[in-house]
Amino acid sequence: MMQVEGKCELFEAGHRACAGCGPALAARLILKAAGENTIVVASTGCMEVFSTPYPETAWGVPWIHSLFENAAAVASGIEAAIKQQGRSEKVICVCGDGATFDIGMLCISGAFERNHDITYICYDNEAYMNTGIQRSGATPLDASTTTSPAGKCSLGNKRPKKDLPRILAAHGAPYVATASISYPADFVKKVERAINTPGACYIQVHAPCCTGWGFDPGQTIAIGKLAIETGLWVNYEMVDGVVAKAKKVRRKPVEEYLKAQKRFQHLFKPTPKTEEIAKIQAMADANATAYNIDIKLKQERQ
């Protein structure tokens, strides 16, 4: 069980995130793991807006926001400066999936190639939530967003999620991990490991957005769990480019995850899109094979 520190939160109450916000929980957990000796670099996005309207900052550690797409480059400069000054703070980028998968790729690629001693954490809520739920490179196949709406001729987002962890592992990142806010202890452990690993490390944390995905705020944790239990999200670690550990599950059919969210409702109503759901199931099956996540029952093994 994690230590509970209700009175000395480094990410403070009073922020303006939606009730039940997954990213807000991610921010709290990141600072719990990282502690006070941390400098946070933020991108423009939902978290930046809900946590820092002047002068009401929710951040108890040094925090800087410059632009949408340059957090990794700003962090590069901060890391170089504190190294030059002989200081010890850890530099962490906390950025959304739009800032990470799309507009910020150039800066991220550069920072990872140079292997600055930074930890880049993408809170992945699978669309541009700040501007009203537009698709990003992290939006899953068939999710309906305001720029990939389901319609008479469309089943929603046309492409599956970009595999960013592998792209960054291919840069030579010493530690890459995926995590979920629904497994807080695991996430905290991964953040601790990343910040204590020299070099540029990457964590992509699944952070369900009740507003953007369309579910009840009380379900944020449950939805994140379903993503893992269906195999559509895999929690794993890559050390020096090799998958070291992936969370095993007794898999549930993907319908359970999809049905629980408004963004996938068009796959079921007015008539079930069986073929399309089968495609998504196949993606989960492929994940299960690639990361070996299925817990096999004894009879099955025989």
Partner: peptide
């Protein structure tokens, strides 16, 4: 020069890195 030279991948990142360095208290 007793300093760090960051070989960035674009001018956009060059100035962004300088911004970070200046914010952290270094002459950029």
């Amino acid at each position: 020069i007793d300093g760090e030279y960051i070989t960035v991948e674009s001018e956009f990142s060059a100035l962004s890195a300088c911004l970070g360095a200046s914010a952290a208290g270094s002459r950029a």
